[in-house]
Design a protein around this nucleic acid. Structure first.
Lengths: 149, 149
DNA sequence: ATGATTGCAAAGGCTTTGCAAGGCG
DNA sequence: CGCCTTGCAAAGCCTTTGCAATCAT
């Protein structure tokens, strides 16, 4: 999915996502809206469990359904998946206007966003290696102050 | 485990690893040696399955054992784990003299090593975010030419 | 009304654990 | 010989699948 620039203003993320759903003939169900509302208004990334808990306290639902909806959103490019090294996938709303990398604490999984501009050569290096496309999103691991002894 | 600089010459990786094992009172078993020989002489990263297949064709062994040995090697800092996004952990021998990042094709999982010198600001940026230590190893995802339509 | 979506139960796939047998030093 | 290591079987966990019931348009 190619997103329009103008659609990514903070408050429009939810509406943009709903539009994408409609364009793909996907119905605007209560659960989809709840999940998207949560993701577009919170800083992630979140585990499936996180998303399930948040959603479930508002409306009874099933873990399986969360898995399915998130998979669809990822497929549509509305959600980005991150692997932080503990075997749990994490997800966050992906806004093309605010691409960023993650600085991740290996121990406590604390996540700090880092501007993509910090690594200006990524694209160039990738091209040189024969890559046609690189994602402006990756995880850099380390230990945050409180986890470093 | 802090590694000595002089120990990381290509042909010494195996001996270095064996020394580390001894220093930790871990026995030099046939399987441990086979796995380390494979890892120190091949370019990774490899899945547990990869390692198992390679080892098993030389000596009958059990998948469980491979998991256990690799976990120990990772704990010792001799092996580095990578998550490439397909749910399978991958491992490669980690030599402090040759830290590098991975450029990974999201589709075919092809891996190209990238010199850490290409991203000189990583450390600085991490420090500014309150991180005491960052690993000079991370994965950058993209699509290689053959997988890009 | 009708095709998409959800819940529930079960199956899958990778990984870990328990325990007895075997191996290294 | 004594403790570490391995094999085997079973359990754990997260995730996916099948199918019938329910919902959005």
């Amino acid at each position: 999915v190619e997103k329009d620039k103008e659609a990514c203003q903070p408050k429009d993320n939810l509406n943009f996502a709903l539009r994408i759903l409609r364009e793909h003939n996907l119905k605007i169900t209560v659960l989809r809206k709840l999940i998207l509302t949560f993701l577009t208004s919170s800083h992630g990334p979140f585990t499936i469990e996180n998303i399930y808990e948040n959603t479930h306290k508002i409306k009874a639902c099933n873990l399986t359904t969360i898995y399915r909806i998130i998979a669809q959103l990822e497929e549509l490019g509305l959600v980005r998946r991150s692997e932080l090294g503990d075997g749990l996938s994490r997800y966050e709303y992906q806004c093309v206007d605010h691409p960023h990398h993650h600085l991740v604490c290996r121990s406590c999984k604390k996540v700090v966003p880092i501007e993509t501009s910090v690594f200006p050569d990524v694209e160039k290096v990738a091209k040189k290696q024969g890559f046609k496309k690189v994602y402006p999103y990756f995880e850099i691991f380390g230990l945050c102050r409180s986890c470093f002894d």
